[in-house]
Nucleic acid binder design. Structure first.
Lengths: 343, 343
DNA sequence: AGCGGTCTGGAGAGCGCTCTCCAATATGCT
DNA sequence: AGCATATTGGAGAGCGCTCTCCAGACCGCT
């Protein structure tokens, strides 16, 4: 024969019908053990491997999922591939968690990038063409329109982090308030009395939650008013915020920054002002990103269980593919405090 | 209707046959422009999207390729996902190059990992099942058995770096000798007179080539004998080699290490011995890996055009998929010298 | 006008598989 | 034993698409 063997070939070799071979392969219904054995031998003898396309055509399943890295940016000029996305250990951890869950099931993710509107349309088409059964979305920005596109298209998808607007889509997220509370507890336990915080942009949910969680926890510790300067999750905004904090509250002895990048900036500003960290001022970040380790001194921060979250995301997606009408769910994970040297 | 529209639906809506619609979609043969327009409108009206499985079934093409990260390690215990592979900027650059080339063609790579024998068998099956048309292999070790498995299986595949044993498989590689020559020229131009080198393990082709290239170039500059200590591409081996070099040739004023990791180790050893880099001893590495930038001082090194190489790899693979009987080819890329502070 | 040649659209045969029916056989019960 | 009831294998109908063949229309030429 020229092509690879088909079910028909195996059936002929085993002296049974196609249906029986199919049943043996898919382990569906009862098949006489003796016949099963014959079939297995015929499969081995012919070197048969099922054709995925034919199978997909009838089952309407491909057995593969898309891992989509998406952004909100309309920047979308000639940036065919965001190289730096790989440099980001966050993405590596997500991919690790997803693959860790899917691989034992024989599923391998297809990597898609969606920073531009055109690319987002491609992702939707990709799923509509049945090239993948569903998508795991990791958005780098909050305002990403892709989740809505997928939901509107009735395509199975799950999200890393809660969508800014309510959307009937399952997601996983971290308990931001709990994380902020860990930071507060740690600063208080260290003996900090004059604590301030640098929040993220307050139109972002996570930033709101981290601020609220921090203030609530500090209030519980008897510090009802915590100075806060709003940042933008960037290095520059963090530096500016820290400068202002120092100007307005020169006696500050503890700072909680809503992400590591701003904490890193804070560290630099404190250093410039001759303040020793953690002795004069203790600093806690959030995310446990690569920045946390690069800091001097290494940053005490709040770590997301990213791998676990990613694995759960994969599980949620498969469940939704299995039962499309199931209610959407969200799973919230507790973060952990990672104590390094900055606090 | 329940399911999504099919070719049949579009044909009915346009008042033509399935074949005509198919021809319009695939742009094959001539179709009356008026009819084409009608068909396009019918496609838009029905929201038709071709079903990939049905298409693949008859064309025997999936239009997708596998990007396989493979290792030789039989270590294969419970390491379901090599998280650190993403941390490696080399992989990021490869992925970037591959995606950059494939994405405009509407092809998205499927990520596969193959560190264990079982995983390698899975990769072969993946291709045999027709889940992807071919594989781009990035081996982390030289002794990877996967290339041979794929060649033996008659499956389209291409390789990053020349296989240790001759194998009928296309690959891209970097001109190691040319790179080594760049290093030699630079050291000589700096005025180094007593130059030595730390080679990689000499059972690895790349290590042999780098050493030979370096020696040849130095000979051209009138330095026929260049001391060499064999390392193993690791930090430890690099440190040991540098120690020995210093002991045997205390007056060395220039070192070429066959990769950045060993160069980094050399830098550390030189620092411990109170030698100033680059003033007392100039050091050149190879690879321009992340280590190069992390070094103190930042490492002068030889950079592979990884993205270009990866893109070429993708091109080679598609060509092979298109014409399976074509002769295998190899494309060798010239590296570039990146001058930083260490030399 | 008549003929070979070219161009265009339609009909229909599969691609390899799953899965619903059916028939045939085995099993349980009175 | 005799019937209803599982249990198991086979036959065959598609899944949605591409592509080969064929027929008809149209062209230019002698």
């Amino acid at each position: 024969m020229s092509g690879s063997p088909t079910l028909e070939d195996v059936a002929r070799a085993a002296g049974v019908s196609r249906a029986t071979v199919s049943r043996v392969i898919n382990g569906v219904r009862n098949v006489n053990p003796a016949i099963q054995e014959t079939v297995r031998q015929a499969i081995a003898a012919t070197g048969y491997v099922p054709n995925q396309a034919a199978r997909s055509l009838v089952t309407r399943r491909t057995g593969s999922v898309a891992l989509v890295v998406s952004g909100a940016g309309v920047e979308g000029e000639e940036n065919p591939f965001p190289n730096q996305v790989f440099a980001d250990p966050f993405f590596g951890r997500v991919a690790g968690g997803v693959v860790g869950y899917l691989r034992p099931l024989g599923i391998h993710p297809v990597l898609l990038f969606a920073e531009t509107d055109a690319a987002r349309a491609e992702v939707v088409d990709y799923l509509r063409q049945g090239k993948a059964d569903g998508a795991i979305l990791v958005s780098t920005h909050g305002e990403d329109p892709l989740p809505k596109l997928l939901v509107d298209g009735g395509l199975p998808a799950v999200l890393f982090a809660r969508p800014p607007e309510p959307l009937p889509i399952s997601y996983v997220d971290v308990a931001h308030r709990t994380g902020a509370k860990l930071a507060a507890d740690h600063l208080v336990a260290r003996g900090c009395h004059r604590v301030a915080t640098i929040s993220g942009p307050l139109d972002v949910l996570a930033a709101q939650d981290r601020l609220a969680g921090f203030r609530d926890a500090m209030a519980m510790h008897g510090h009802p008013y915590i100075p806060c300067v709003e940042g933008a999750f960037t290095l520059d905004s963090g530096a500016a915020a820290m400068e202002r904090l120092l100007a307005e509250h020169p006696d500050v002895d503890g700072v909680f920054a809503a992400n590591d990048l701003m904490a890193q900036a804070a560290l630099q500003v404190l250093h410039r002002h001759g303040r020793l960290v953690p002795d004069d001022v203790a600093v806690v970040g959030f995310d446990d990103s690569s920045a946390a380790l690069a800091c001097k001194p290494p940053l005490t921060t709040i770590r997301h269980p990213v791998e676990d979250m990613a694995a759960e995301l994969a599980r949620l997606l498969l469940a939704q593919i299995e039962q499309p009408d199931q209610r959407v769910t969200s799973v919230i994970f507790d973060p952990a405090l990672v104590v390094r040297e900055s606090a």
